[in-house]
Nucleic acid binder design. Structure first.
Lengths: 140, 140
DNA sequence: ATAAACCCTGTACCATGATACAGGGTCAAG
DNA sequence: CTTGACCCTGTATCATGGTACAGGGTTTAT
């Protein structure tokens, strides 16, 4: 067979068929070649694009951002310096996200542990712990 | 003054006034006490709830999940063991997210660095690098 | 005591990310 | 050579997370 059908891509990527077509429209996956019949014939790679997209989405990236990530490479229209710039910007964003996640994790771990020992009854433990670690610049 | 107005909360939380009311409807912030006039009078804490909500959202948590995080505590209706269980589950989710972010970050860093040196022209560097590090269980 | 700025409820509308048909053609097995 | 599973395009619908009034009352500074 010369390529995967949309159904196979959907199944392996664990998304709906309609979602695959939707991703194509949104530029997340390139329009695949067609068979005589008009059926899409996808390369294996497409499955990974779909999976990557799903993961990235769970990390709060929009489809537009994901499309950009997937197309981030040096090519005829994109010069190296530009790619580098965008990569570096994304790295900063990612680090920001990771820091916040790290704090959330610590807070949750503390909550679970503390609970074990004595059972805290703070109004909102998560918030109190998160606040204490961040620079609260609340000016009136 | 006995509490913040909705406008003050919105401004400090860097969201729209309508969003504050929306968050209230969605259970992210508790219905505040009212003044004689019916005006909402928020405690300072609300601003932090709003900010936390915004951050968590950027990490891919839904408003529903955020509401749960914010209410994660031992209380009259919630027993310690349950809180612990939920906290532990969230921690696992968070770790998963962090791992994916870490991989994305490494890939982007590699891309930026490589680009500096020789200019790679792989079709989709991000994907290729991400795939090589993950267990691709693609069965037909 | 009056105008600007603000808040109330309620409902309508918007963008994003899908998901669901309708109406019709294609493929694969018996 | 038909029947069920699959694919096509196009359009409608949905859930989530807001945003925007309309119509009306409140606060505050002058």
């Amino acid at each position: 067979m010369k390529g995967l059908t949309i159904g196979q891509v959907a199944k392996r990527g664990e998304v709906n068929i309609e979602t695959v077509r939707y991703y194509e429209r949104q530029g997340l996956i390139p329009p695949p070649p067609r068979r005589e019949s008009g059926y899409r014939a996808y390369p294996e790679e497409t499955v990974n694009r779909v999976r990557f997209s799903k993961r990235a989405q769970e990390l709060g990236f929009s489809l537009k951002e994901i499309a950009e990530l997937l197309s981030l490479r040096v090519g005829p229209d994109t010069v190296c310096a530009d790619v580098r710039k965008r990569a570096v910007a994304k790295i900063a964003e990612i680090e920001q996200k990771m820091e916040t996640l790290e704090r959330m994790k610590e807070v949750l771990a503390g909550l679970a542990a503390e609970c074990e020992r004595r059972g805290p009854v703070s109004e909102c433990p998560i918030l109190e712990a998160m606040e204490s670690e961040e620079d609260v610049d609340a000016e009136g």
